[in-house]
Design a protein around this nucleic acid. Structure first.
Lengths: 132, 132
DNA sequence: AAACTTTCGATAATCTATTATCATATTCCA
DNA sequence: TGGAATATGATAATAGATTATCGAAAGTTT
């Protein structure tokens, strides 16, 4: 076994700023590849390793939260948002935030089961893909 | 590129029967490893490759349906069940079927989005794990 | 600006899940 | 029952996502 990467987010770098900027301004959960693509327009030469490193650091610090959708790679969104769920577009494979939630009490598990959390995922076509 | 596995499920084998039996009798979505473990009690020496092969064939034939839960390996359940969702126990990592569903109309995506399907996943502790 | 430390980028390595390979064992029909 | 076709089991290979490695580049402190 080898020792893990040692990083502490002590310095202010253009790459780190770009990654934060991308996630904050896009307003929807993004995969590492999406962050890389968007980030490249802010910092030429941005590398995927840097994206992964910073997503990990920003998640560890609590600034980002992981978003897992069935059969999809992990996406990330800025933390602190009120309870919400996600929509996955089958055309462009982008995830969106949806505010509406039926409420936990609406879901019933078999008796004897304790429900502690829930996820709702909607699938379909986003507005952008519908109009083309 | 090489040619893919050629199998057509033409023969009746103890392994195939065991895999079907396990999935039909357990009544909840099972991962390949779970199927392997349970299947071994019916057919000594059952191999993981055989499990994967038959899960694939049974899915292609429509007898099984894949069940994807966030961040979890694909599970499989017998097809034909009425609309339902799943519960994932955080203790034993087993998935269960839950019949209750708020209904598609309860979920609202942003205007301009077309919702075609939805998934609900409950997380918590199953009855079995609660009692120990 | 020098020195020091952190971070970056390219890429190799790792990890988990799944599929391919292939020699052996089975099934099933003649 | 003989035999061709199919299936199995062990394991190598593959695939996708993520992490580690390491020399170069950049930030930070003095």
């Amino acid at each position: 076994m080898h020792e893990t990467d040692t990083q502490s987010m002590e310095r202010d770098t253009p790459q780190r700023r770009a990654i934060r900027e991308v996630l904050a301004s896009t307003g929807r959960p993004m995969s590492p590849d999406e962050v890389l693509d968007a980030g490249k327009s802010l910092v030429k030469g941005l590398g995927i390793a840097t994206v992964y490193r910073n997503l990990k650091l920003l998640t560890a610090s609590g600034w980002l939260s992981p978003v897992n959708l069935p059969g999809e790679p992990t996406r990330y969104e800025v933390s602190g948002k009120p309870h919400h769920h996600h929509f996955l577009c089958r055309e462009c494979d982008r995830a969106f935030e949806i505010e509406d939630c039926p409420g936990t009490q609406e879901f019933h598990a078999p008796s004897g089961f304790r429900v502690e959390a829930h996820d709702v995922v909607l699938y379909g076509v986003c507005a952008n893909c519908k109009t083309r």
